[in-house]
Design a protein around this nucleic acid. Structure first.
Lengths: 343, 343
DNA sequence: AAGTATCTCCAAAGCGCTTTGAATGACTTT
DNA sequence: AAAGTCATTCAAAGCGCTTTGGAGATACTT
């Protein structure tokens, strides 16, 4: 069913039918109703490509997911972020296009996406420090919103980020207040900007209390259950093991819990664990009482907000870069307790 | 940069430039090289909408993710499936469009997607029994591949599925062979077809050995850690608790493990656990030795294959429906052992 | 030297929509 | 009664590409 056929069927011009359906005022209410009814009955929905070509807007947003040899897996938070963003898009009548790209060819892919014009804007995932994509997209004049931030990038750009610094400072302080002095950090990969920020705040919180950093207590790996288990197991077998762990994801924390139990220790008593919790739909942190003490910030909500931000930016291109910071809440579970007294 | 500008720049017609770039033979090699070089330098990439309009193909595949009130979360396997499919698409020069839709409006959305013609094919996720989408897409004449199958649908259609029946039969038999008689099933939601199949094979395996089904040992919930914990905790406190659990996902199994430990029991000795393992990137089942005994089948690989299947179907519309079944391997971890002797 | 292939290349139509600029008719206004 | 207004409607151009149906050179036959 095309506009042409529909208009012939109605004995009207394409112009009139198009205007009737798109809510223009130059068409009588009677005609509009007649057109709408026919469109409904004949299941007419305009060809998106033709419409896009005519209007110059794709009504689609691109999400580019970097995958690389060092970072092969698709981040588990991705599904929830997409779910949030997707719900915003569908309300606004936008589509979501996802491209996977390996790190090597990033620049080319972004250039192509922009040249091909099948998205009106882009959400940039997983910013690294000094992320080159920000300069590139700015130069290409493509609206975009970064999920996260990129340290050391000095041109203005729009972003939405969790306050990772504050969250990890609070988490570290919380452990310090409980008397812990040997606090391990199981961080994500530190070329990722958020991981870098987290380490910085962990480090500064310790130093503020005059505690020297111990590189043996700082790990930076992909955030998997296994890595949590392996790192924690190794650290727990040190001469002077950590009494507390600060981890970057629930999944890592689950691995840490396994290591603690394997070592015959009790979580929340012998060893404390505090984690960041992205509040994923399928991995809730307990029900009534949280399992892990955590800094919680919903990644799904972040997806919703990021999409809204981008749509606003597209609708209103003259407004400058927008920023939004999401505070994580510190929720207290059963995985933390006072530091055990040294024997 | 448009074709027109590029052709003017080269002093050639649009026809020739188009043909040169698309590899048609009616253009001299010398010209072709000149055109390609210029295209590269000027960063020309054809406008996808215009190209799509002219060729009638969108070069995009749609993935429709059902979200509903009963089933709100985005399935955790989704990310890995998408990663697999996406890598196939990008190799083939296809885009991936994702739509989230709530259950109520499914039919309308599918009709719209087809009418709007911005995808050449669709991957159907999460088929239920009697899934109405299969008939609809067939009627709308849109190529599609179902990830999973739909029992009770009798028209032919293309699908790719894990052999859930066989996997759960083997898993149940494995536990039976170890002497277990009270075996709990923590299944996914059973309006989902795969969950239905899993229960059927669990039930038939038990019955084949003359063991009556105990409804108190069969749960059907969203596959979260919490649900695993809650269901297992409850069952472990029964008068005659199960000696083994069969779970539908690693995440549920992790919850079961937590329940076992909370009950002061040891997994693999007092209570056995066997799970289906989708082999997710961020949730590996141990490293050298698997933690859980599991029926493993990579959902990422399924994504790759499903996408390939669909692309073949699109390239070659005359071939009838295609099927592909993926066998799960049974891997032995430390979570299973002989049934404890009754006191 | 004319006829025929073969190479290259091009003008223009068409994909399905939106949007501009104009036409039509009914209704007021002078 | 002529002119002006307003509400409707339409024909046609244009979005950027592919593709059809030639056309002009050049080389090859006879």
């Amino acid at each position: 069913m095309s506009l042409k056929k529909l208009s012939e069927h109605l004995n009207l011009s394409q112009t009139t039918v198009s205007r009737a359906l798109n809510g223009y005022p130059e068409v009588s209410e009677k005609t509009r109703e007649r057109v709408q009814k026919a469109a409904q009955e004949l299941n007419y929905s305009p060809n998106a490509r033709a419409k896009g070509l005519a209007t110059g807007r794709a009504h689609a947003i691109g999400h580019v997911i970097p995958v690389s040899t060092q970072h092969e897996m698709v981040n588990p938070v991705f599904g929830d972020f997409i779910a949030g963003a997707g719900s915003t898009y569908s309300k606004a009548g936008y589509e979501m296009m996802i491209s996977l790209v390996d790190d090597q060819q990033q620049e080319k892919l972004y250039r192509d996406i922009c040249a091909r014009r099948n998205v009106d804007g882009i959400i940039v995932h997983g910013p690294t420090m000094n992320d080159p994509r920000i300069g590139l997209l700015t130069e290409l004049n493509m609206p975009f919103v970064v999920h996260g931030r990129a340290s050391n990038v000095d041109i203005p750009y729009s972003w939405l980020d969790t306050n990772n610094s504050r969250a990890f400072r609070r988490a570290t302080d919380f452990l310090l207040d409980l008397g812990h002095r040997r606090i391990a950090l199981l961080n994500g990969l530190e070329f990722m900007d958020y991981a870098f920020r987290r380490r910085e705040s962990y480090a500064s919180a310790l130093q503020k209390r005059g505690i020297a950093l111990d590189p043996a207590l700082m790990q930076s790996t992909e955030m998997t259950e296994i890595n949590g288990f392996l790192s924690a197991s190794e650290m727990l077998s040190m001469d002077v093991p950590p009494t507390a762990f600060l981890t970057s994801s629930m999944i890592t924390a689950i691995g840490v819990r396994r290591a603690i139990q394997a070592a015959g220790l009790e979580m929340g008593k012998d060893v404390s664990v505090i984690t960041h919790d992205d509040d994923l739909g399928y991995l809730k942190n307990g029900h009534d009482v949280p399992i892990f003490t955590a800094t919680r910030s919903s990644v799904r909500a972040a997806g919703v907000r990021a999409a809204e931000l981008l749509l606003r930016l597209i609708a209103n291109p003259t407004t400058g870069p927008q920023h939004e910071i999401i505070e994580a809440e510190l929720i207290i579970g059963t995985s933390t307790g006072p530091a055990p007294q040294r024997p």
